[in-house]
Structure formats: structure tokens, C-alpha cells
Simulated assay, not measured.
Amino acid sequence: MQRPPLPPFTTQTAIEKVRKAEDAWNSRNPDIVTPAYTEDSQWRNRAEFLTGHAEIHAFLTRK
């Protein structure tokens, strides 16, 4: 799944990409936030370690 804007970035498209990422995170919606990360993403939250979309989604849903 490709989400524009795609590299190579200009200053304007880089700003657009960052704002879209901020908007997704600020939505606090796990269904929107989770796909922004790769399938093999690894997160750490204090003593909790998460790997992959399923664990990240479950974590965000709990929070």
C-alpha cells in the first residue's frame, strides 16, 4: 500500500507527509495509526515490548 507523497521529497511534500502522520497519530484511532507502521515494527512502552500490527493495534486500543 502506497501513501503519497512518495520520495523524492521536496520541502513542501515533506511537510505534507509529516502533517499527515501527525493527523493520523492525533486522531487516536488505532485503525488509522497502525497502518502507518511496517508489519514488523517493534515498539517499547516501559516494560512492554510490542511487535507487528496486531500487537500495536491491541496496545493502542487499550490505551
Results as ranks from 00 to 15, higher is better:
1 M>H: 13
1 M>V: 09
1 M>N: 10
2 Q>M: 10
2 Q>S: 13
2 Q>H: 11
3 R>P: 01
3 R>W: 01
3 R>K: 09
4 P>T: 08
4 P>Q: 06
6 L>M: 07
7 P>T: 03
13 T>Q: 04
15 I>F: 03
16 E>W: 00
17 K>H: 05
17 K>Y: 03
17 K>S: 07
18 V>W: 02
18 V>Q: 07
18 V>C: 06
20 K>M: 12
22 E>S: 07
22 E>D: 08
23 D>W: 14
23 D>A: 12
23 D>K: 13
24 A>Q: 05
24 A>P: 02
24 A>E: 05
25 W>D: 00
27 S>D: 05
29 N>A: 02
30 P>L: 05
30 P>T: 03
31 D>M: 04
32 I>R: 06
32 I>M: 04
33 V>C: 01
33 V>H: 02
33 V>W: 04
34 T>R: 05
35 P>G: 03
35 P>D: 03
38 T>Q: 11
39 E>I: 09
41 S>P: 00
41 S>K: 12
43 W>I: 01
44 R>A: 06
44 R>S: 06
45 N>M: 09
46 R>T: 09
46 R>H: 09
46 R>A: 10
49 F>M: 11
50 L>R: 08
50 L>Q: 04
50 L>T: 02
52 G>W: 14
52 G>N: 12
53 H>A: 08
54 A>S: 14
54 A>P: 03
55 E>F: 12
56 I>Q: 12
57 H>S: 13
57 H>V: 13
58 A>L: 14
58 A>Y: 15
61 T>W: 14
61 T>Q: 15
63 K>C: 14
63 K>D: 13
